[in-house]
Design a protein around this nucleic acid. Structure first.
Length: 256
DNA sequence: ATGCCGTGGAAACCACGA
């Protein structure tokens, strides 16, 4: 069972590439972020024609998350991260698929730091931590996939010294990620590839893709009970090289 | 050191991204 995460950077603007990737890699579950489309403009007809069912949470212009499933129905369990009724941003959706609780998330960017956007990011991560405690207590097997906007370690960025003050690499944010793994959540990519330099994002400018000046900010985390089932993982790097590509590449895991 | 590119939405520029 393949579960993938892909920040599409505009689901309608880049639909062609999304469909090409789905057809090519056929993930059983695909978590999408940055739909940049309101609820009524999600391209559900094209997604269904490609063989997928979907739940999604849209938003005009920004954010937006979706879970696509193949040969299975997604049973929605939550839309919106609990803990702040005033938070209107579409960054979180959750569903049960084939006995696994799938969480699709798009963590706030947080720049500039310090500032209100960084405060929102830290508060959001705090809320996520609390939600994950609940999910852990429920005993359900959980896969958490998305754009975390967190560079976990120096190994995950082409030049760490350039990113020290950035909201993706600030100590508070790295600590939040480390707290998750310390709590038992498994960084699936690192579990299987501890020493490799792996990126999932390359900026559009400064020829970042050509120079392989990337970041690892898209992650798949597993509840500890799923660790024995983790049979493979990867980043579909070539997708970043397609014409009119998103600035992120898809990341995926395989569960046996 | 830097939105240099790219999106969506509104309005021929803006906010936002990482």
């Amino acid at each position: 069972m393949r579960i993938a995460s892909f920040n599409v950077n505009g689901v309608n603007g880049r639909l062609e590439g999304l469909l090409r990737w789905l057809e090519e890699t056929k993930p059983d579950v695909a978590c999408l972020q940055e739909l940049k489309a309101p609820q009524g403009k999600f391209p559900i007809a094209a997604i269904e024609a490609a063989g997928y069912r979907a739940i999604w949470l849209g938003q005009k212009s920004w954010n937006g998350v979706a879970v696509l499933t193949r040969d299975a129905e997604p049973i929605e369990t939550a839309r919106h991260l609990p803990g702040d009724e005033a938070d209107q941003q579409s960054r979180y959706i959750e569903c049960a698929v084939r006995g696994i609780l799938v969480v699709c998330l798009y963590v706030p960017n947080g720049n500039p730091a310090p500032g209100p956007k960084f405060d929102y990011k830290l508060a959001w991560l705090d809320r996520l931590g609390r939600r994950l405690h609940e999910l852990k207590a429920s005993g359900a097997p959980v896969v958490l996939a998305g754009d975390f906007n967190i560079i976990p370690t120096e190994q995950d960025v082409y030049r760490p010294e350039r990113w020290l003050k950035d909201a993706l690499f600030r100590p508070e944010v790295r600590s939040a990620f480390a707290a998750l793994t310390a709590d038992g959540w498994v960084d699936a990519i690192r579990a299987l590839r501890p020493d490799e330099r792996i990126f999932t994002f390359w900026d559009y400018f400064r020829n970042a893709w050509g120079r392989d000046a990337g970041l690892r900010i898209d992650h798949v985390l597993l509840s500890p009970d799923l660790r024995p089932r983790l049979a493979g993982c990867g980043v579909d790097r070539h997708v970043r090289g397609w014409p009119h590509a998103s600035d992120h590449a898809p990341v995926w895991i395989e569960l046996k």
